[in-house]
Design a protein around this nucleic acid. Structure first.
Lengths: 216, 216, 216, 216
DNA sequence: CATGAATGAGTTTTCATTCAT
DNA sequence: CATGAATGAAAACTCATTCAT
């Protein structure tokens, strides 16, 4: 449990260890219930060192949020190729998203649950990331409409709501998949892809969404 | 701000006042940051009385979660008529849901944000309520499949995922609507109904979901 | 050592006990070296009670300064009769001053040493009291000049310097008397009276100072 | 602000830089509030080096007190010529004193305020210096009495008190002059000279004090 | 000689919780 | 019933001080 207690590491390394411990602790306990004592012990260092490097509990939490948000958006971004059709882009993005959240459950808890439960400094940090993702999805919807030879007469507010719903569904599914044994990232992505792209009505009629495989 | 300080109220009434104060405080501050002092003051009673009636902070929080969960499920249940077609039932349920969450933002915050960010005792309480709703939605989907003269060859896990996605989208939209000025419960319900029932694909093709108006 | 541990005292009494302990501790150790733990123990109460009543270390220190400053000025004020000649007023004031500081060495230490060593919040508190005393002395000098049938052609800045010197001498003598065994308040007052009055008198007239005994 | 970071200075020089930084920091912040970190940074060296050279915070503070005390007494001593009459010696001494304290406000703060507010190790250090000055003044008074053809029938305790009062007045005036814009060392010295010497002179003879200008 | 890395011990402060009245 | 008085336990944060390199 906790990093092996190795002495005299360079600062950059120690900082990452501390943030690993902090993400795990914040993710499981929540911001307020997590104590700096616990984080320091899990990181295998003394509390003063945590303060020396990360300044304060607030700063540490903010640093965690930023690191995890960056990692997540980076994972999604690098999973999507923008030269693909919209549905394929969405599929790739969802797959990357569910894969990443499954591999970083504590980080996802920090972003999805903990950061939003506390005042402006933190919520804003996550909101920024979320807006980026919502914007990406919004634009996908617009592109999809165009691809369907259809003028985007969907009002802007409506599109925003749809994107919000899609992202919200993804977030919930990520938490659900993390907690339900046997649900893989691929299955979660497939479920949501069907749900959002085909819609329940289509599914009922027997018209699910199907992945048009391309090269890779 | 707090309840008017009237002496000698029956216990049941006092308890409700305390829980009103507690829901408001927990909803805004979060479980840990909420202090029993603040709750007692907002309720207009002395702290020992809170302990006499509600036992402990944990018990108080649990009681709040139960009360709010009950109120929410009750609101949804009483908004739905089971003799209607599945899509109508979903529509009614969503409308009731968004209406209730809009009218009880603190209670919704307790259920959606605060209760889930803290350990088992509380998360389980919400999970129970959530499962009830997910079960309702699951069954709606099954019924809808049957109504479409289609054997529910959708595997159970798949249906569970769809229900989960739908509920997750609803939860996110509720929070979004509470925070985005000018979004009414009806609009939120319509957006989600379109999204889930028709699906993005159908929307692109120009086949949105349409409310088949019945009696009222 | 410390107040006898009696339970359940009314708030006003406990507050005074706490401030007694605080003055003793601040006076001996200094503001920063005094710990709230020590103060609470000396007062015979738990730390949280100190915070409940006095809010913070800063507030407690400020309260101590104010109480001691008030007690000192009150002692001096009530020792002086303004219908007496200036020299008699000064004598009475000095006597009251040295008597009070001798009886409250810790309080005097708080005012003279500790409060001035720390930033604005505290120093200002003492400065206010000091200015009151300096103003009193300044006015005595002016009155004395008038009594000596002498136009106060002493420039204002000069008078201010003289008052400052007199008060400074008194402050130092008080500390000295508190530390030198066998020096009574009366002796300290007599020494300073001779030192200052004969000097000032000489500036205006040219006679050594002699106590003109009146009634009491 | 801090000393320029030059490598490889002889130990004696480095030590002086550290003590400069320490005096500035102790003088402004006080003993306890001054941190070794701040001192080291202001001195432009690493903390371990401070410990290597000065051992501990206590030792460093003691060293500062000693250095400043020595500098002050040296300044006063070298300003006085013992072949002069007593009043002239006092005048010269006061002038040197006020000049030095005005030029070294931090050092004066260390001696006058900070060192005295902390326990025995430090207060004793200052007391020694102070006694030296008080002794010098005491002897001046005795000499003056003799010069006035007057047997020193002033009892020893009385003379001690007078010296104490004079030194105390000087100390207060120094602090006052450091804080009151436009008050020069010369003015402070003149004020105190009038205040004290005319008074003392009156005790023995009866004349205001006038500077008998000699060579310089 | 010089320093980046590291910590034990202590500080102020807060909070859920309980009696005695 | 109701409350003013009181506290044990823990949290965030700081600092003088020391090694290993």
């Amino acid at each position: 449990m906790g990093a092996v207690k190795t002495k005299r590491m360079p600062r950059a390394v120690r900082e990452q260890q501390m943030m690993d411990a902090a993400v795990a602790t914040f993710g499981r306990r929540g911001y307020m219930a997590a104590s700096m004592d616990e984080i320091a012990e899990l990181a295998g260092v003394s509390k003063p060192l945590v303060y020396l490097y990360l300044n304060s509990k607030e700063d540490l939490f903010t640093a965690c949020i930023r690191r995890e948000a960056l990692a997540l958006t980076e994972a999604v971004r690098s999973g999507v190729r923008t030269d693909q059709p919209a549905d394929r882009q969405l599929w790739d993005g969802l797959l990357a998203f569910f894969t990443h959240t499954a591999q970083n459950p504590d980080g996802w808890s920090v972003l999805h649950l903990q950061a939003r439960t506390h005042g402006e400094p933190f919520a804003a940090e996550v909101a920024a990331m979320r807006e980026e993702i919502v914007a990406f999805v919004t634009q996908l919807i617009v592109v999809a409409a165009r691809e369907a030879h259809r003028d985007p007469d969907l009002p802007e507010r409506e599109v925003a709501g749809l994107a919000e719903a899609l992202v919200g569904a993804a977030e919930s599914l990520a938490a659900w998949a993390n907690v339900t044994p046997g649900v893989t990232a691929k299955q979660a992505a497939a479920t949501l892809m069907n749900f959002s792209w085909a819609g329940l009505g289509n599914l009922m009629e027997g018209r699910p969404w199907v992945l048009q495989d391309v090269s890779g």
